[in-house]
Design a protein around this nucleic acid. Structure first.
Lengths: 185, 185
DNA sequence: GTCTATAGAGTGATAGAC
DNA sequence: GTCTATCACTCTATAGAC
């Protein structure tokens, strides 16, 4: 049984998002999860590295089923289905990142000093997103699906930065609307 | 005389960029600047907060003269001058951020827990950039200069994330080329 | 203006009781 | 599986010699 371990992953994820790797101290994690230092090390003997690794994996799993699978499920050449999938992605992404109030952990880690240690998890996360999105954009009729997919994912990351800098969720949502073809303006 | 204080600002900036606020310990700063703990506190009695504040100010000054002023200097309606200024910005920005290898401190801080404490400096940095860029885009003939300026600045931030995630500078430069009108492809 | 020494709190991690 | 207690270390910040 690993229900307690699994249950604390979203809480640990939030701590890593809010505080980054270095700011995510065990005392903060303890407070966030209600587990003590000892219990956390029971679940994650590898310490903070293993905690962040498990968190990244659980985030990847969520995106896989909630965002990537729908994008990949668009039938080839079905422009209407593609447009619908793009709108759906815009909505899930805006919800997940709370219109830019919530940070993307993959983005935070890629900007951080500890980038290298989690490089495979982070690059796989972005690669899966871009590939799935490129599939949908191909069905949509994009001339450069991969390039456009990269631009959209980059825009999401940059829009989080700006929305937080200006403390204005509207900045996030309007950037998304501009970047994603077929998204509701 | 404050030459020693000023001289260490770029070194401290690099430390904050590489390690973030929490990872930027005084021992790392000491090693990077060649100054001891005591000397750093002599220059910045307010501690890390004052150090980061001074660093953000010095970065803002550099961008002001090197990036924002050229953008604002484009004469109204001069499309050729605007295109040239956009190309120049693309080049300076790619150089400054080393094709995405080097992180944007404003972006890092805006994603971090300590966002609020440096909110004015960071939002002013992005506001100045967007406003100066919107001026150039107006001269270029953009239908939505401010919206496009926001998209370009967001793309720069997102492109840094992706270039680092993929450890591929080409991702940064090609995103810039796609986002900036008139930039060299 | 630069240094050493030090204080006091917090850090990640481990050991072992229950 | 959850806890307390503890270790060795690092952290920010201060005091004071030179």
């Amino acid at each position: 049984m690993r229900s307690s371990r699994d249950a604390c992953l979203p809480l640990l994820a939030e701590v890593f998002r809010e505080h980054g790797y270095d700011g995510a101290s065990l005392s903060v994690m303890s407070a966030a999860t209600g587990l003590t230092n000892g219990s956390l090390y029971h679940f994650f003997p590898g310490g903070k590295d293993e905690m962040l690794g498990a968190v990244l994996e659980s985030i990847g799993t969520w995106f896989e089923s909630s965002v990537f699978v729908p994008l990949r499920s668009v039938p080839a050449g079905d422009r209407a289905a593609a447009e619908q999938a793009l709108q759906e992605m815009a909505r899930s992404v805006s919800d997940y990142f709370r219109s830019g109030k919530r940070v993307c952990l993959g983005g935070v880690i890629s900007l951080s000093f500890h980038n290298d240690r989690f490089a495979t998890a982070v690059s796989q996360y972005f690669t899966s997103w871009i590939d799935a999105l490129a599939h949908t954009l191909t069905a949509y009729g994009s001339a450069d699906p991969t390039g456009q997919a990269r631009m959209i994912v980059a825009t999401v990351q940059g829009a989080i930065v700006l929305a937080r800098a200006f403390d204005d969720p509207e900045v996030f949502d309007s950037a998304l609307a501009l970047a994603i073809p077929g998204a509701v303006k």
